[in-house]
Simulated assay, not measured.
Amino acid sequence: MRNSNHLIGLLNFFTFLLSIPIIGGGIWLSSRANNTDCLKFLQWPLIVIGVSIMVVSLAGFAGACYRNTHLMRFYLFVMFFIIAALIGFIIFAYAVTDKGSGRPVMDRAYSEYHLEDYSGWLKDRVTDDSYWGKISSCIRDSKVCPKMRRVINGAPETADMFSLRKLNPVQSGCCKPPAECGFVYENETLWNPGGGLVGSNPDCTRWSNDQEQLCYQCDSCKAGVLASLKKSWRKVSVINIVVLIILVIFYVIGCAAFRNNRRIDNDEPYGEARMTKSRPSRIQF
């Protein structure tokens, strides 16, 4: 019990150090936000998370090392809500990513993604015009599609070679037209109708060989983003479960440190309860 103060102080010192690069990353993104909406979209969450970790860590460190009961009470109060919020986020993340997956394409190694396979809050959020404008700008600025290009002996790879590639959801949905459109392959991001019939999929008319447009406004692109988010959120949820276990351990140690501070404030010897101190027994063993 006595060592709990030192342990919680040491742990919070390390989390305080961890918050510094997180805040630094947010400030760095802020300095570059005027160049890209993608970075602007990410800057504030990093800064808020970093500042929150720093404040809570300082409260826990000072409360444990200086045996300040009020700071420890604040630390435990905030930690309780952080744990509750983390549990809520884990449940929410699994709930909004329970539907949707890629569909296999004949004679292709990659899958394609259809917006109608997804539903719920996450789909509504991604497909909202204001949010999709930021997301599509983020995809464009990240150069996902130009990075797909491969040159072999000075020439683009062939259509057969491209069909054997395993594209990620964003590459499959945003950087090429759907296979059902029947477009003729020229290179990874250049496809032509070729005089054949264009499929009935609305994305067939949305496709553009303009390298700034491609299929960024296609439903397949939105579906690819949803598939990518599902995969990412599931991975983050696993990490969050590990973090949750660590935070619960921190909270239990913090409770022990808080009880130790209260005992010292009440001048109670270690191992002696307040009831025993205030009403001592006449018979001593």
Rank of each mutant, 00 (worst) to 15 (best):
M1N: 13
S4Q: 14
N5Q: 12
L7D: 04
L11P: 07
L11N: 09
N12Q: 13
F14H: 04
T15W: 14
T15G: 11
L17S: 07
L17D: 10
L17A: 12
P21L: 14
I23Y: 04
G24L: 11
G24I: 14
W28K: 09
W28T: 10
L29R: 08
R32V: 04
N34V: 03
N34E: 06
N35P: 00
T36A: 15
C38Y: 09
F41C: 02
F41G: 01
Q43I: 12
L46Y: 14
I49A: 15
S52I: 10
V56M: 12
A59T: 04
G63F: 05
A64D: 08
C65A: 06
N68L: 12
H70G: 07
H70F: 11
L71E: 03
L71P: 00
M72D: 04
F77D: 03
M79R: 09
F80M: 15
I83L: 12
A84P: 04
A84S: 08
A85L: 11
F89L: 12
F89H: 02
I90L: 05
I91G: 11
I91Q: 06
F92L: 01
Y94L: 14
T97M: 04
D98M: 13
S101F: 08
V105H: 02
M106T: 10
Y110L: 00
S111M: 06
Y113E: 01
L115T: 03
Y118V: 05
G120Y: 05
K123F: 04
T127A: 07
D129I: 10
D129P: 14
S137C: 12
C138I: 00
R140E: 09
S142F: 13
K143D: 11
C145Q: 03
K147L: 09
M148W: 00
R149I: 12
R149M: 14
V151I: 15
I152R: 11
P156R: 06
E157T: 02
E157A: 06
T158P: 07
D160T: 07
M161F: 13
M161W: 08
M161G: 11
M161R: 15
N168F: 01
N168V: 03
S172C: 07
S172E: 11
G173M: 01
C175R: 01
P177H: 03
V184Y: 05
E186Q: 15
N187D: 13
W191H: 03
G195S: 04
G195K: 10
G196Q: 10
L197K: 14
V198Y: 03
S200N: 13
D203H: 06
T205D: 13
N209Q: 08
N209S: 06
N209V: 06
N209K: 09
Q211M: 15
C215M: 14
Q217M: 10
C218Q: 11
C218P: 07
A223L: 01
G224V: 00
G224S: 01
G224P: 00
L226C: 09
A227N: 01
K230A: 05
K230R: 15
S232H: 10
S232P: 03
W233T: 05
K235M: 01
K235P: 01
V236N: 02
S237F: 08
V238S: 09
V242S: 11
V243R: 00
L244Q: 03
I246L: 13
V252D: 00
A257L: 00
N260E: 15
N261V: 06
N261C: 15
R262K: 10
E268C: 09
E268G: 05
P269F: 07
G271V: 12
A273K: 12
R279T: 09
P280H: 07
S281H: 08
S281G: 07
R282K: 13
